[in-house]
Design a protein around this nucleic acid. Structure first.
Lengths: 237, 237
DNA sequence: TCGAGAATGTTACGAATTCTAACAGTGCGA
DNA sequence: TCGCACTGTTAGAATTCGTAACATTCTCGA
């Protein structure tokens, strides 16, 4: 199920600048954060709130970081990501073996930390089942789980799997050129084939279902000689 | 989903020595492996068997590796680990964003690969071995010990063993594509036989018992040319 | 501005795939 | 043995989707 509140990330690192940097990047990315400088505080904090992800630095003043990770792995359901300056393979292997889900080496780029946290959360959500597969755009709702388009009046129009592949491609990167080659690749058409016409047809059918005016399509624009652009604001729910 | 058999890892890399090395290390560690040198073979293989983890090298001769990853993330429930020589942060971020669960940079140490695979599997395996025999989904309860379906009103509908096999397969991996080949393998239908029609019929009968509208099934969706998807949140009790 | 040629859109058709009803074989218990 | 439930098989209907053919639009040079 979807988080109604933003996911919560706990940060355990003894260096204030690093905490700051991580917290800033994560909040920027839409997460809630809590920072701790010592393992004792951290473990006390866990008793109050259960974070979704824990970022743990191994170099702690008051406790062995690996011991913290191990306890965490046993007792908490949170995803555990180690951040450490110790770059040896052996360090990484033991960290992961003790229950960490990921191991990031210092110095790190905050963008990668965010991406790795997202990857962990994404995976966690799958196990609860229904991934929310609904996109809102231009008055439409596309339900990829039920294969239906719903317009403003609530009328449902089913779409097929092939149409869905195209639509998903568009909704995944709106307002951005998608070349025919990219589309072909994404739709699994083997290269060099006469898949071109088939693609046109898929798009044509999709346009029809979206009620596009053939003379003046508002959502799926053709870029002659290049590809297509899907226009509009897309919100995934 | 309890693994009685060792977890299955699919390896996609164009360099034979790397495939060899990975396969050796993984088999040493107790995994089952299958190697592929090209994306086309790999995708063909996925139609037959669903691996638990996919190791994907981005530098492929016949297809863009990221496109392969993206499709995989959408269609398969497997954990995806990218292995790549491209070490830029931006590469890692896009790889993870496209749906990969981890990103390992070449050159790598096989021991770390094993550790990271274990970390992925550990997270997936939420269910304990205690074989739960009751599944809740979409207002239904399926009692596999008594072979009955119970709806919201408490009305019981018995289902047969063959129907149960299909239903269990669906309830074990909801919201993801199950190809006909995978289903055939899981249901023990010998390859090449005309088991196809039999499968259709099993599913048709199951749909009837679940009260599906033939024109617009809500739970068991057909993916033309590919297989089926069971939709909905499933809770085993 | 016009026209040729290329790129794209649309429609109709048919091959492949899937659905389902009816039938038949099998096994088991009364 | 009979009857019944289960399950595979068959065949015809329904659906999906690519292909071919034709229509339209676009680009660019004359």
């Amino acid at each position: 199920m979807t988080h109604s509140t933003p996911p919560h990330v706990a940060i355990l690192d003894d260096e204030p600048e690093i905490r700051r940097m991580l917290a800033d990047a994560l909040e920027e990315a839409g997460f809630r954060t809590t920072c701790y400088g010592r393992a004792t505080e951290f473990e006390a904090g866990l008793k109050r709130t259960a974070p979704d992800v824990c970022l743990v630095d191994l170099g702690l003043p008051d406790r062995d970081g690996l011991a913290v990770v191990h306890r965490l792995a046993l007792e908490s359901g949170a995803a555990i990501i180690i951040i450490s300056g110790r770059a040896q393979v052996q360090d990484r292997v033991t960290g992961l073996e003790l229950g960490a889900d990921d191991y990031i080496i210092k110095p790190f780029d905050p963008a990668e930390v965010v991406a790795r946290i997202r990857a962990r959360l994404r995976k966690g959500r799958v196990e609860t089942g229904a991934s929310s597969q609904v996109a809102h755009f231009a008055g439409w709702r596309a339900h990829f789980d039920r294969y239906v388009l719903v317009d403003e009046t609530g009328t449902e129009t089913p779409f097929s799997h092939a149409e869905g592949e195209v639509l998903r491609l568009f909704l995944d990167s709106p307002n951005r050129l998608i070349t025919r080659a990219q589309m072909q690749e994404a739709l699994g058409g083997a290269a060099g084939e006469s898949f071109d016409r088939a693609m046109d047809v898929r798009i044509s059918r999709l346009r029809t279902k979206l009620g596009e005016d053939p003379k003046n399509p508002r959502l799926i624009k053709t870029i002659y000689g290049a590809g297509y652009i899907f226009l509009g604001e897309v919100r995934w729910a």
